[in-house]
Each structure stands twice: as structure tokens, then as C-alpha cells.
Design a binder for these strands. Structure first.
Lengths: 227, 227
DNA sequence: AAGAAACAGTGTCCGACGGACACTATCGTT
DNA sequence: AACGATAGTGTCCGTCGGACACTGTTTCTT
């Protein structure tokens, strides 16, 4: 299949010069650039130059830029945590928090995992981690898969917003506030909602709020099944 | 602010040749290309050529490619629907379905709205629509904003998965299944879950399942507040 | 010891992209 | 009729990913 490069380290050949680079070094260089300047700043040129080599030498290690980015994602996401599955609700909450941490540490990942892509052991490991929590709920297999999907989707969605809010000059909420100041008459309910939110002072609870709603909803379904 | 071009049609000048193009024509050409071949196929060249003009003529209308894509998104998302807010739960469900429809009709939008971007009247209109449904729930302003965020995030996340599943040769679930066939021993819980899901036959319920969980969770919170 | 074979890294070239800039063509106004 | 504002074109540039042929290096085989 297409994503072998994420699973098998290449067999070290016996003949010829020793490789001066490694997939790990290359991925780390790319990650460093993406963390500092965004995914768009990651070019074959930059990555190679950061390691003191020419662009073309990278093609000895990766088949193209897509592979490089896939390697970066797999390494940035990291190995999934070990979570005690005794209390499924607490475990899922912990899982979601740690996944969000991984995304926020490397905000460009949400951009990189868009579209068709290769799937690596770490990414599958995170799914495995969630899958190992859910059996005690008594939900069906389809429901458990969907539950993982909803939670992972929520984490991704929040990570996207968090990424946008990173650059102060292009803050989405500031942009919305500005447009509402200009054309507020066309969006009365939205203006009222934001005014109310400003009054009650609660901010940046989007992740926790959504997570709690989803877990409440799951809990309800589990109890319905259980009794 | 930076996104005036999404709000004000440019004033038609009296002197000089008549414009041969319009923002609407340009955006439609871009949308047609993106629908057919994906966002990556949208280049200034292609869009201009489809209208029978040279690339540089587009710069009379848009400041750059970013503006073009923003125009495409604003037009593709379309004007938000009018929804009867009597039953807030049914209304939100309808809202989410229609928003998903809009995304699925133009799968490239989920890619285009990543990162800092200008915000247009249609996008704000969708938020207004949701905001006008929620007051009857009795939730606080912050909670209502977060509720909108969770729902919109869920729709976006599902739309992303739907986009990936579009191309048969790079189906993510098929890729996962393939890797599990090879390395299933490392992911026992995941293998078991997918086997169970295949047995109970329920498929493609991710959107409905997640939406129902979120709405259940909101309902619970509303009732807690109400009594 | 001397090729031969496999491998690592480089230099050069290409087409496509977004975009700057100077240019010509077209129109309403005076 | 002339002018000036506007529309559209042609040319050029830097950067990108990548193909391909090349040189240099190491080790196995004879």
C-alpha cells in the first residue's frame, strides 16, 4: 500500500556510504519550521538547508513532499497515552484533552491531515486508545466507532479555531466583532448573544462545553442501553 | 478592515470601458473548477481562461488569490435558510443538516476556511440563524455561543470526512482497514470494534449519531437550567 | 589488490504557480 | 478633438516541487 513508509523503517543496506540523514532528523527539521512559521514555510529547500544539505538529497529518503508532511504529522501527534479505562467517561475526557494538547502543540497538523492521506501507527494508536475505552459502555460497534468520530472531530474543530486565534493580527473573533460593529443591524440575534456573553464573562470554554455536552449525550445513550 | 470586498460591491464608475467581468462571474468560474477538480485546480490562470481572459485581468477585480477564494466560499456557502425557531431542538437539527448540505455540495470549502480569513455576510448569516434559535433555551450568552461552536464544528468535521471519502482510490476507511489487516495485532480493540460494527451493519451514521448526542447533551443542560 | 556494484549527495533543468509593472485599448467628459 | 479614468494584455521575476544525469563513496566479490 501507499503508506508503507510510515510503518517500516527502511532496511539499512550493507553497501555504499552511510546515510547522513534519517527520516527522524528530516521530520524534526520540518516540524521545527512548521511550529515556528507554519506549514506553508515548510519547503524541501528549507528542510534540507536546515540540515546542511541540498534539496535533492531529501528525495533519497522521502518520495515527495506529501510523504514528508505525513512523517511530520505522525511524529508530531506522538505515541498515544495509556489511559485507565475503568471510568469510561473520565477516560474519554482525558483522551480528548491529551489529543487536543497534541494538536495545539503543533497547530499546523490540523491543516496537514486534510484530504486523502496515509495513516500511520501513531494515528491508529490514538484510535486504538479510544476504542479500548468504549467496550464497557455496552454500545454497539457502530455506535462506538461513531462516538470516537464525534470526539475526534470535536477536538479537531477546536484545534482549528485555536490555531486561527494564534495570530493576533488575524483573530477570527476580532474580525467577527468588527463586522458586527459595522453591520450589526443585519444580525440582531448574534449581536445580542455576543453582548450577553460579554456580560456573563465566560470565555474560551468552547472545548470543555462541547466535550461535556457530547459526554452527557453518550452517557444518556449508555444508560438507556443499560436499563 | 481587510474584508470589505465581501461586503460592498464596488461602485460602478462612469468613465472608461465597461467591465467585462464581475465578481460573481469570477467566483462562479472558480467554484465550478473547485467542484469538479478540487481547490488545488483553482489558479488565476484557469479561472481567467474559463472566462476567456488573461490571468492578469482578474487583478482588476480581486486583490489576490486569497480574495478570490474568500469570494468563492462566501458564494458557495450561500444565504442561510429561514428556520422556524419554535422547537429549538428541531430547528438546530435542521440548521445543522442544511449547513452540512452546503459543505457537501462544495467539499473544497472545508479546506478553504482553514486559517485566518475574511468573514462575509453569508457566513455571519449562518451564525445569526443559529443565534436566533437559541434564546428560548434559557442558556447564558456564553453557553449559546459555545453551543453554536460545537454544532458548527461537528458539521465541519463530518464534512471533512465526507470530502475524503469522495475519492474512491484514497478512501480513509479503506486505508485504515488495510493497515489493520496488516498490523491488527497492535490494535486489538480497534479491530474488535470494527468487526462488531461490520456485524451490526450500521454504516455512515456518524453525522446523525454525533448530532443526536450533542443535542441530547444540550437538552439535558437546558432542562437542568429550566427546573 | 582490483574491479564492480550499490548507494549517497549534487547540479541543472523544467513547468506551474502568484504576482509586480509597464503597456495599450476603450470609453465618458470637457 | 483632446484628455483622463478605467479595462485588459504582455513580459518578467522569484519560488515551488520534482525529473534526471552526474560525481563521489563505501563494501562485497573475484
Amino acid at each position: 500500500m501507499s503508506s508503507d513508509f510510515l510503518w517500516e523503517g527502511r532496511a539499512q543496506p550493507t553497501r555504499g556510504p552511510k546515510p547522513a540523514l534519517s527520516l527522524e532528523h528530516i521530520a524534526d527539521a520540518g516540524i521545527a519550521i512548521a511550529d515556528a512559521e507554519g506549514l506553508a514555510a515548510v519547503t524541501m529547500q528549507r528542510v534540507a538547508a536546515d540540515r546542511g544539505f541540498t534539496k535533492m538529497s531529501l528525495y533519497r529518503y522521502v518520495a515527495g513532499k506529501g510523504e514528508l508532511v505525513a512523517l511530520m504529522v505522525e511524529r508530531a501527534i506522538g505515541v498515544p497515552p495509556a489511559i485507565d479505562p475503568a471510568d469510561w467517561r473520565a477516560a474519554l475526557k482525558q483522551w480528548a484533552h491529551q489529543l487536543l494538547d497534541a494538536y495545539v502543540r503543533h497547530p499546523w497538523t490540523v491543516e496537514a491531515i486534510l484530504g486523502p492521506r496515509a495513516v500511520g501507527p501513531n494515528e491508529l494508536g490514538w484510535m486504538e486508545c479510544a476504542a479500548s475505552i468504549l467496550p464497557s459502555t455496552g454500545l454497539t460497534g457502530s455506535e462506538r466507532l461513531d462516538a470516537i468520530g464525534v470526539l475526534a472531530g470535536h477536538v479537531r474543530a477546536i484545534a482549528q479555531q485555536a490555531m486561527v486565534g494564534r495570530q493576533p493580527e488575524a483573530d477570527l473573533t476580532a474580525e467577527i466583532a468588527e463586522q458586527l460593529r459595522r453591520h450589526g443591524d443585519r444580525f440582531p440575534a448574534l449581536v445580542a448573544t455576543m453582548a450577553a456573553a460579554a456580560a456573563d464573562g465566560g470565555h474560551d470554554q468552547a472545548f470543555e462545553f462541547g466535550l461535556d455536552r457530547i459526554l452527557d449525550g453518550l452517557d444518556l445513550l449508555v444508560n438507556r442501553r443499560g436499563g
